[in-house]
Every structure is written in structure tokens, then in C-alpha cells.
Computed example of a mutant assay.
Amino acid sequence: MINEEKIKLMNKMAMYEEKQGQEDFKISSYHKKDYTSFQTILTLIWVTIGYALIIGVLAVVFLDMILENLGLLMLAVIAAAILIVYIVLLISYGLFASRFYQKKHTRARGRVKKYTRMLTQLERYYGQERKKKYE
């Protein structure tokens, strides 16, 4: 006899495995601090690369203006502005990324725990069927 509850449970599990399961299993395999630190460092590296590219493009675009007004003071002001904006950008992205990836890990871990509970429940259904079969 077909158990409808078992079929519904198996369907929920299959949907989860297809949609989010693989990513959640990968995320929850890390400790929260390790996952958050690694992803935050990657974010900061990409922010640095992006910022360097933007500064490079702006330097090329405004090269004429920079060369006309080039002086030691102007060069120091531009370098200080670039450095300050970079530090502010790095700190803000670092804080945002850290919080974002902590939440992402917590949610993934919760979904994996729910999936594990469904597996346990499914195992109980099969255990009940085996008992009935041998009685």
C-alpha cells in the first residue's frame, strides 16, 4: 500500500535537493567562521580589483587634466583621496559581506537540518513498513 505522507515527504526532499540542496550542503560543510572569513576575503579581493580598474580607467580618461595640473601638492591630494575612498569602500564592503555570509550560512545550515529531519522521518516510515512486512 502506498503511503501518501511518505510520497509527499520524498517529493519535498527531491525539490529541495534540486533547487538549493547542493549549495546548502557545500556551505554547511564549513564552519560558520571559516565560511564567512573565506567569502569576505574573496569579496575584498574582488572589490580591490574592481577599484583598481575604475581608478585606472578614470586616470586614462582624465590624463590630460591630471598632467596639466600636476604638482606635488595635487599629486598628494589625489593619492590621499584615492586611498581614503579605498579604505572606506573596503571597510564597508567587508562589514556588509561578513554579515551577509553569516546569515547565508545560518540559513543554509537550518535548511540542511530540516532536510536531515525529513530523512529521519523517512527512515521511520521505512522502518514501520519493514516491521509490518515481517509481522
Rank of each mutant, 00 (worst) to 15 (best):
I49K: 06
G127N: 15
N69K: 14
K131F: 11
A76G: 05
A81L: 05
A79P: 02
I41W: 05
Y93E: 01
A14S: 06
L89K: 13
K8A: 10
G94T: 01
F25H: 05
S92N: 13
G127C: 13
Y16I: 07
T43L: 00
I91V: 11
M1D: 09
K131E: 15
Y101V: 01
I82H: 09
I55A: 15
E123T: 07
Q39D: 01
I54W: 00
K12V: 01
T40R: 04
K32Q: 07
R99L: 13
N69L: 10
K132A: 12
I66M: 14
L119I: 10
V88Y: 10
S98T: 15
Y86G: 03
K8T: 06
I82D: 09
G110K: 12
A80V: 13
A79N: 08
V88E: 05
N69V: 06
E135K: 05
I41N: 03
Y134Q: 13
Y126F: 08
K19T: 07
G21R: 03
I84T: 14
R124C: 10
R107W: 04
L72D: 08
L58C: 07
L122K: 08
Y86Q: 09
L67G: 07
L72Y: 04
Q20C: 09
Y125G: 00
K19N: 11
K32R: 10
I49R: 04
E123F: 02
S37F: 08
Y86H: 11
E18P: 08
D34T: 15
Q102T: 13
A14W: 04
K19R: 04
G71K: 05
Y134V: 14
F96I: 08
E23T: 15
S29K: 13
E18C: 01
L58Y: 01
R124F: 12
I66V: 12
L73A: 10
M65N: 06
E68K: 13
K26S: 12
M65A: 06
K12S: 12
L63T: 12
Y125E: 00
T40L: 06
G50C: 06
N3W: 00
L72M: 09
R99E: 03
I55C: 13
K113D: 03
T43Q: 00
I27C: 02
V61W: 15
E4K: 12
F38R: 08
I27Q: 07
R130A: 15
M118V: 00
